[in-house]
Design a protein around this nucleic acid. Sequence first.
DNA 1: TACTTTTGTGAGCGAATACTTACTAACATT
DNA 2: AATGTTAGTAAGTATTCGCTCACAAAAGTA
Lengths: 197, 197
Amino acid sequence: MNTAQFTDRQIEIMEAATLRIDKYGIQELTIKNLAADLTLSEAALYRHFNSKNSIMLGLLSYFIFEMKDRIKTIILKENKTPTEQLKEIFSSQLNTFLKKPAIVSVIFSEGIFQFNKELSEMVSTMMDLMQTHLVSIIKKGQDDGTFQDLISSATISTIILGSMRMTVLKWKLSGHKSDLIKDGNTVLKGLLKMIEK
Amino acid sequence: MNTAQFTDRQIEIMEAATLRIDKYGIQELTIKNLAADLTLSEAALYRHFNSKNSIMLGLLSYFIFEMKDRIKTIILKENKTPTEQLKEIFSSQLNTFLKKPAIVSVIFSEGIFQFNKELSEMVSTMMDLMQTHLVSIIKKGQDDGTFQDLISSATISTIILGSMRMTVLKWKLSGHKSDLIKDGNTVLKGLLKMIEK
DNA sequence: TACTTTTGTGAGCGAATACTTACTAACATT
DNA sequence: AATGTTAGTAAGTATTCGCTCACAAAAGTA
């Protein structure tokens, strides 16, 4: 498997990095530890990435690439109602997190990235991407009369995005013990009751 | 822990730390930098705190102490409606963040603290505290017929908390350029429209 | 004044950090 | 067979990290 811009070895490295962040936190992502995980020398890592920063940048862009694809597929299903599309996006995101919990750790590390321009821009890009898609679905729902239009689509999508994030955060803080899918469905049902006319 | 337990010098140190985190991020909070900010030697800091960790613990416990007090005052205003109480809590939190943005950096660093038991417990405590208070207000609103009760108070409070957090996160990612209070009000107004009968 | 306590210092410790260098073995292409 | 490329290594570099120690000035107290 090769995602065009990355070599197989790069993907292996990024996956090891993701796993390490998930297991021990982003502070424990050091070149030394990462090299040990892959049973490689530290220098070998620099054959594939020219800095630690570019490993993390790669990580994020790899996830964004995959996410873009996933969300786009849902958005393009013109026969689906806005409600169904929201449900699918929620379900698609949560199931991705369930399958690859490590990515959640990376996304929730944006606090650390704040003063790393490249990385924080990447996190912002990801959030904007999701926000844009949510807005377009909600607008469609407001136009066809499914959703109420007393509240702007931007505000509604902020609320939805925030609620989804909070659900994931709680799941993470519970040590993945809570039922992410069930809790996510409960929250989305609540949100839909609130915004449907 | 309470304020009285801190000496004047300790508070000076914690405030310098707060300022530094706000300006340059939590990664730039080092003993060396902090000492330089206070024009002190590194060793001098260890006269007042026995570790860097205890400086951060002090920071958090100081904020939690202050938050508990602030929220309790609002909760105890029995003559206020649930809607007014929600507005006050939102406003109170956002204004605190505005005055001490560093605390946001700390709260949004739960990813870093995940493997520091003491610090992560403190962050969890803080979230539970807020959630508990939100639930009690919403229940009150549901009982007196202000809020709809088709959705459980727990779910509603998750949605509110998540929306608030998302607003703060966006402010943070914008480099404190966006208008936190204005955006917060817009989101809260939206939320209230959704949950009021 | 004589003492005790508090608050400071400079020098330096061991460990960790991201990254570099000179070199090598395996493989692919011609 | 000759040659260039890829992917690895051991052993460093310079720097930073949190933290400690022996000691001294300053401040409070008898």
